[in-house]
Structure formats: C-alpha cells, structure tokens
C-alpha cells in the first residue's frame, strides 16, 4: 500500500505543488497542504486555493480517501460530516466516481475540486451552481432518482430494492414502467451500481431510504421486503425502527 500511496502522491504533487505526504504510522497516511486551482463550469471560472488534509483509508485504493478543509474557511454547516470531513457527494456517488480511476489525482480533480469550486462560487454569489442534495435519507433517494433518471421516489426505490435484495433477473420486467425487460432498460445502471459495494451496503442504504427517505409515514406494500427485514432485524440499530415503522408483516 505504501508504494501505491507514494506513487499516487508523486503524480498528484506534480500538479498540486504545495502538498506534502505525511506518514504517521506504518499504514497511516495523510496529505496536507494547499491546493491551488482554476476550474470552470458553464462559463464561470474560479481561481482559488484551500488548505486541505486528505486522509488515506487503510484499504486504499479499494476505498476512496476523504478530505478536510483546515484553513477555517468552510463553515461546518456547508456540507461537512460530523467529524469535520467534507461531504463531497452521497456515499455511493463518491465510490462510483472514485471507481472510474482509483488515484489521488482523480479524487482531487473529480470530487474535491468540484466541491471547492461550488464552495467558492457560493461564497461569491450565495448560490450552488450544481445544486445540492437534501440532508439525510431524502437526499439519498434524490441521488438514486437522478442516477436512474426517474422522478418517482417509489420507482427509484423499487430499482434499488433489486440490488438490496440481491435479486437481479435480466429477463424480468423493469419496475420503471417501460414494459421492457430489465436487461435492455435499467439493467446496465443496476449492474454498475451493484459492483461498487457489497450487498450489505445496499441493504442498509435501502432500509434507510425506505424508513427515513419518504415523505409519507406509512411504507407502501411494494417496498416492503422480508429479505431486508431479516438482514437488519438482528441489528440493534434497526430494532427500534421496526416497532415504530413495522416495515414487514
């Protein structure tokens, strides 16, 4: 891992010169320093720099790094996690983008800088040019809606349910209502998603969306799932929810 991190760092520092690699313990790395960039998105050009620390996870490059702003410029209320790292995108989107090319350079250019661009833009104009997702589960449902290109959250979740139940059948009819077989409809998107994370991730993601991400209190019958319920019912975290929401009979 050390070799990979060092190689990826060398590539990164060739363009972002004010960064240094900090090697704290044998397997703990972070990258600290200043990232100066120019970026453009629909006519608007940003030239800015931020003090950033990038934390390398112990299973890098299987998991993406995370980043923190250290200059005190990004206010905690601007899309940051509780522990202070930046919410670059929804969890699965971070993994999806990082998976395109698992390097530090790609992480910085495809995830970190778009985020910083948006922050600089927000400082200047008080608006978010790419938009933002709602907080919590609602935002995750919105994300999958955009990913599957569906506007109905029930359909979004029916598609996600296929992966969460680990029940992909290419010849079944796609739940999106097109009348086509999944294979020639949303199949490609579903399979791309499926390979990003183990099934357990989608089980929890789905459960969270169903319990917390919908506007209504009651859960529509078609979204209930014995498979999901069994998987999560032995976890304490979810037990109290099953009494208030009773997701399955």
């Amino acid at each position: 891992m050390k070799e990979i991190v060092e190689r990826h760092f060398q590539e990164l520092v060739s363009e972002f010169k004010y960064l240094s690699l900090v090697h704290e313990e044998p397997e703990i790395f972070s990258i600290q320093g200043n990232i100066e960039f120019t970026s453009s998105y629909s006519e608007e050009i940003i030239h800015d720099s931020y003090n950033i620390t990038i934390f390398i996870p112990s299973d890098y490059p299987n998991s993406p790094p995370c980043a923190q702003e250290t200059g005190g410029r990004i206010h905690p209320s601007f899309h940051t996690h509780n522990e202070g790292t930046l919410c670059l995108a929804s969890n699965i989107e971070t993994v999806r983008i990082f998976d395109e090319n698992r390097t530090l350079m790609h992480f910085v250019k495809a995830l970190l800088i778009p985020y910083l661009h948006q922050h600089s833009y927000y400082e200047k104009y008080g608006k978010m040019p790419f938009g933002e997702l709602s907080h919590g589960a609602k935002g995750i449902v919105e994300y999958y809606g955009e990913y599957f290109n569906t506007s109905n959250p029930i359909i979004t979740l029916l598609l996600l349910k296929i992966i969460a139940e680990d029940n992909y059948r290419g010849h079944s009819i796609c739940p999106c209502g097109s009348g086509k077989k999944i294979r020639i409809c949303h199949g490609e998107k579903l399979l791309a998603l499926k390979k990003l994370k183990p099934n357990s991730f989608f089980v929890y993601e789905y459960a969270e969306c169903v319990f917390d991400g919908l506007e209504s209190d009651s859960i529509p019958t078609e979204l209930k799932s014995n498979y999901i319920y069994k998987k999560i019912s032995n976890k304490n975290v979810w037990q109290h929810r099953s009494t208030t929401h009773s997701p399955t009979k």
Binding site: F37, T38, H79, S90, P114, M128
Partner: peptide, 22 residues
Amino acid sequence: ITLIPTNTPHIEITNPPKPWSK
C-alpha cells in the same frame, strides 16, 4: 515552497456530484 506557480492546474468540471450530508 516555490513562489506563485506558473501553471496552476485547471479543471474542466463536467457532471459534478452534488454535495450531500447526513
């Protein structure tokens, strides 16, 4: 630290992710 870089990296942003938080 070298003073003011002559070639600051430029990133063309396409399909940016939307930020999200819990």
